Simulated assay, not measured.
Amino acid sequence: MINILLADDHPYLRRGLSQILTDEFPGAVIGEASNVPELLEQAQKHRWDVVVLDLTMPGRGGLEGLHELKRLLPHLPVLVLSVHPEDQFAVRVLRAGGAGYLTKESAPQELVQAIKVISRGGKYITPKAAELLASHLHQHGDHDQPLHSSLSDREDQVFRLIAGGSTITEIADQLSLSIKTVSTYRTRILEKLNLKTNADLARYAVQHHLVE
C-alpha cells in the first residue's frame, strides 16, 4: 500500500489525479490539500510516501511550501506537478530538494512511473530537466549566466507576477505579504536585473521566455 498526498488548489484536478492513482495503486490512501498551510498540516499529521505538489497556489506558493516541507520533513519525497514548462522552474525545484518535476501536460502513465520511482527513494528527472540542471551546474559562476538566476525564489515569484501585469497591491494580496514588503522585493529585483521600470521587467521576462 502507498500513501500519497495531493496538494493543488483545483478540486477537479485533485479528483482526477486521485482517480488515476487509485486505479493504478489499489488500496492506496490519497490525501488532499488545497493550499500550503493545509499541506504542512496534513504532512505532519500522517505518514506519506510521496507528496504531489502544485507550484501555483493562493497565498504561500508551492515553491515556498516545498522549502518549508523539506525543512520539517527532509526525507519526505516531493514530486512537483506544474503548469509551468520545465525551463521555468525545474532547476529551482530540484535545488530546493524536490524529487522530480513534471508538467501537467505529462501523460498519466508518466505520473504513475514518477511516483513509483520516487516512492522507492529515487529521483524522477526527465531528459529536459537533466539537460537544464547540467547547464545550470556548468554555468554556475559563469559570467554568461542570466541575471535572473541570481533572484531568490520569492524574488523570482514577485518578478514573474509583476512582469505578468499584476500590481503591487494585487501581489501583496495574492502572496499574503504587505505592500511595503512587495515593494522592497521589487526594488531588489530591479537592482539585480539592472532595470528601472515595470515595463523593463516585462520586456526582460518576454525576452527570456519567463512569462507566457
Rank of each mutant, 00 (worst) to 15 (best):
N194S: 15
G61C: 05
K128Y: 10
A199S: 15
A129K: 04
E155F: 10
I179T: 14
V29G: 09
I4L: 10
A114K: 03
R92N: 01
I30W: 09
G164F: 09
V83F: 08
K196E: 12
L193Q: 02
V51E: 07
D144K: 13
P58D: 04
Q109T: 11
S119G: 13
E68N: 04
L193C: 06
H140G: 03
A107W: 03
S183N: 12
E110G: 01
K128C: 04
L94F: 01
P77H: 02
G122Q: 00
L69S: 00
T184I: 11
A96P: 04
L137Y: 11
F89S: 08
A28G: 07
H209L: 12
K180L: 13
E155Y: 03
L53W: 01
S119F: 10
I115P: 05
L73E: 11
D173T: 09
A163M: 09
I2K: 14
R92S: 07
E131P: 08
A172E: 00
S135M: 13
Q174F: 05
L17I: 06
W48S: 01
I171C: 08
V211T: 13
R95S: 10
Q139H: 13
G65F: 03
V50W: 04
A129L: 01
L73T: 02
A114G: 05
Q113I: 06
I125H: 01
L40P: 06
K192P: 06
E155M: 12
Q207S: 15
L39T: 07
G31W: 08
A205L: 10
